[in-house]
């Protein structure tokens, strides 16, 4: 139900200008970090965003949080296009979308106490909660599983998992509708990771907040997401419900990605279909013509002349739910290089 979506992203683009000198011969003048991404997210749900390093996940997240201006496209939050907001409107919007980073302290002042850090977004928005700022911060500390007495502590006294809890406390302090979580548990040990994932899910149940969850660990993404979107070189290549996508990936990139996930179960790991990609992600400054995945596509090599030409000449329609961005998904048989 599109009208219920808290977030709707349409044809979002971010093209970074390339500094002279880095210009590839005959290349274009921009890096197409995000190039026509669309999806929607319902209230209280989580969209997992996955794909290789450099494919544009963080850039997408940062544009949604308006930490970065989009080159083109619409970002509808609760029915209002926020992609072009400026000044006072942008300032008010900040309450609605917050962000959690891999290391929330990387950007914080090491001499600032935890309490001050958590209060900062409320101070910036000139919000005085009933009962006072300090009380609200203490409440938040407890809500994320820390203690009120942590208020006066300093960042270096906290473990990785505790830091992430502080980041979460900051992010939820303004009761946002959407939180963009950019690799929030990637640096944590499994056990601490489990605690933080549980916390994020509890908060979602209590507040109905929606998450965009960016991560490279597909097991965690599968665990926490309702919907999953797969990006490759700035494009959305496949999206769909979590169960559909994990049970029956259709785009050759998604299939290769899932088959590369090491399974923590030796028998399953031995039985797993193994599709191996060759080479690297091409440069987004000089992407391949037609389908951006064709240079590494395991399906491409199995195609006939005419079908290949289609991949080289024609950009596939961007993926929408249930329809991957591939000319030939219908043909995809076994792709495994070395199935055992």
């Amino acid at each position: 139900m599109e009208q219920h979506a808290i977030l709707q992203v349409e044809n979002l683009q971010k093209h970074f200008p390339i500094k002279s000198g880095l210009l590839a011969p005959g290349g274009k003048r921009t890096v197409k970090a995000v190039d026509g991404v669309s999806f929607s997210l319902e209230r209280g749900k989580t969209l997992g965003l996955v794909g290789e390093s450099g494919c544009g996940k963080s850039t997408t997240g940062r544009m949604i949080a308006r930490l970065m201006d989009p080159t083109a496209g619409r970002i509808m939050v609760d029915g209002v296009d926020i992609s072009q907001l400026r000044g006072k409107d942008l300032y008010h919007f900040r309450r609605k979308v917050q962000m959690i980073f891999q290391d929330p302290f990387a950007s914080l002042n090491p001499r600032q106490s935890i309490g001050t850090a958590i209060a900062a977004p409320m101070v910036a928005q000139k919000i005085t909660p009933p009962g006072g700022l300090k009380n609200r911060v203490k409440e938040l500390l407890e809500q994320v599983g820390l203690k009120a007495e942590h208020y006066n502590r300093f960042p270096h006294e906290f473990s990785g998992g505790q830091r992430q809890r502080v980041g979460i406390a900051r992010a939820i302090s303004l009761n946002p509708s959407v939180i963009v979580c950019d690799e929030p548990v990637s640096a944590l040990d499994v056990s601490v990771q489990a605690q933080v994932v549980n916390l994020l899910q509890e908060i979602q149940q209590d507040t109905g907040v929606s998450y965009i969850f960016i991560a490279h660990d597909l097991s965690v993404v599968r665990h926490i997401s309702d919907e999953v979107a797969v990006m490759y070189l700035g494009k959305m290549v496949e999206q769909g419900s979590r169960d559909e996508l994990f049970a029956g990936p259709r785009h050759p990139y998604t299939r290769a990605l899932l088959s590369a996930v090491p399974l923590p179960d030796p028998r399953q790991a031995r039985a797993q279909e193994k599709i191996r990609l060759r080479g690297d992600l091409p440069s987004p400054a000089n992407p391949p013509s037609g389908c951006v995945f064709r240079t590494r596509c395991p399906l491409f090599g199995t195609l006939g002349e005419e079908q290949r030409q289609l991949c080289i000449d024609v950009v596939p329609a961007p993926a929408v739910a249930g329809s991957p961005a591939c000319h030939h998904t219908a043909l995809a048989g076994p792709l495994a290089a070395g199935v055992q």
């Binding site: 499994v190 599968r222 399953q268």
Partner: peptide, 18 residues
Amino acid sequence: GLLKSMPTLTTKSGRLNP
């Protein structure tokens, strides 16, 4: 405990057990 705390590609969702 280590094995139990991990999500996998096949287990049912729900709470993780750190």
